[in-house]
Design a protein around this nucleic acid. Sequence first.
DNA 1: GGCTATTAGTTGGTACACAAAGTAATTTAT
DNA 2: ATAAATTACTTTGTGTACCAACTAATAGCC
Lengths: 148, 148
Amino acid sequence: MEPVTEPTDLLALDRQVCFALSIASRSVIALYRPLLQPMGLTHPQYLAMLALWQHEPLSVKELGELLQLDAGTLSPLLKRLQSLGYVNRERNARDERSLVVTLTPEGRRLRAEAEKIPPAIVERLGMSLSELQDLHAVLSRVIEAARP
Amino acid sequence: MEPVTEPTDLLALDRQVCFALSIASRSVIALYRPLLQPMGLTHPQYLAMLALWQHEPLSVKELGELLQLDAGTLSPLLKRLQSLGYVNRERNARDERSLVVTLTPEGRRLRAEAEKIPPAIVERLGMSLSELQDLHAVLSRVIEAARP
DNA sequence: GGCTATTAGTTGGTACACAAAGTAATTTAT
DNA sequence: ATAAATTACTTTGTGTACCAACTAATAGCC
């Protein structure tokens, strides 16, 4: 019987970048889970909060551009953030189609808590900052390269 | 008004590795979508097929270890692969708890089609092989570092 | 001004991903 | 040999992701 995986096997699972990307993404998100749980946030919700802490107020459309998510994903996510008491959702008086998403005082307060997270993750990963910067740089290249 | 994002802002969206990881993963998967669609596969299903082409037969447990997915995710995914006619699912005669997942002739045939995908993706990304290898290496480090 | 096209969000459908509860088969410990 | 613990998988519930269809509001065009 010939070897199942030849040296040149293009389809070998362990050499697929897309496979490594999926697993790395899920693995790192899993590290956030216990840290986010006390705030009641999922990882995508945390990313939305990051965007709001930095750029509030934001419309659903703007948030979608920042997070590269479509409105169909964000719409229910924002409702959950609202029912958690972290954001307000109201129509834009100048353009009733548009939704203005803002932070509640509670949502703003959460920022101080959230600031503990990045260092905790870096510590948990135990990778050097320069390596993480490298990673960030390559990922940015990939994101740019994959842009439609 | 003070600048929204200070140079040292730990929470700036665009410097979060987890954010770049999520988007890169979703962006790359999006490149696969049009290539997988003719075969009727989603990206997670494609990864399961990769694992099977390389290691068939596999139990749900083994597949879960390879793909780092739990049985609750794989169970319905495999049923869909079965209804597509690509895999068989039958109980292991030696241990009735265990499911033996094998490829159908149709599933095995699909491999030839699938071999066109990796080069097409690499071409579409337009990144050098060495850069992709770097990426794969860093991602492997991250996956290892994040292991529980 | 009124018709058309575009835009912003919402809703519903499919498919993960993960946690937790449930089931049936097998191991282990007594 | 049997009760208890473990294991492999299934099922259910929640929350994304993405697509497509839909609604309502605005912008463009004549």
